[in-house]
Amino acid sequence: MDAAMGLMRRIPPKHTETALSALLSLMPHHSSDLLSQVDQPLQVMCDVDCGKEFILCEYNRDADSYRSPWSNKYHPPLEDGSLPSLELRNLEIEANDIFAIYRDQYYEGGISSVYVWEDDNDGFVACFLIKKDGSKTGQGRRGYLEEGAWDAIHVIEVGPEDENTNYRLTSTVMLTLTTDNESSGTFSLSGSIRRQMNMRLSVADGHLSNMGRMIEEMESKLRNSLDQVYFGKTREMVCTLRPPSEVVQLRMPES
């Protein structure tokens, strides 16, 4: 398993799906570990009842079917597929509505789904998913990207309700972006990072508002570190390989 996770840290993130299926076929006895530890690009299905798309993940899966957050029905249909309690289902409905507005404001498109389910220790778990195709053939409004995919997975474990409740958020963002033009050729960056955040918050504002704020803060952090730190580091590397001409010219008089 360590070796498998080691490989996933090195293989280009845009090949995650191929790498994961290769590992699954090489080590079938580790399949559940692999599926739970390796994040892979999100898949989408269409809810036949309302025609809206929803995102698939381990948390809305039962056997080979996936539950839609819109109609609460399994696709393909599944008899006695597990459903959240009425209380949590109401929270889920509200979360999906509000998260869709949040998603639209930050992503200008994309798909989102929220799933909520009971936890073993009197709390609950919520999973917020966002998928955005930012390519110019997808929903990239500015048309800069030949290819552009952003997948975000936020899982929040919410502790038993108390004066202050514990929220434990684990977030993963996977993205690829490729620009292609005559003068600069293809330029492609792909990446995947995962972070955690713990907070104790008063439930006075409501769970949804607490979880939403945490996700918003986390997403901004992740976007910022991808942009500034991770992309920045690859840029630094390129510049040490072949310093840009200005630097060379500056250096010349000294030598």
Binding site: R9, G185, S188, I193, R194, K233
Partner: peptide, 13 residues
């Protein structure tokens, strides 16, 4: 280029 401190980000140009 590959940067992999707590993540995996790669440039391919």
């Amino acid at each position: 280029a590959h940067y992999f401190e707590e993540g995996n980000v790669q440039l391919d140009a």
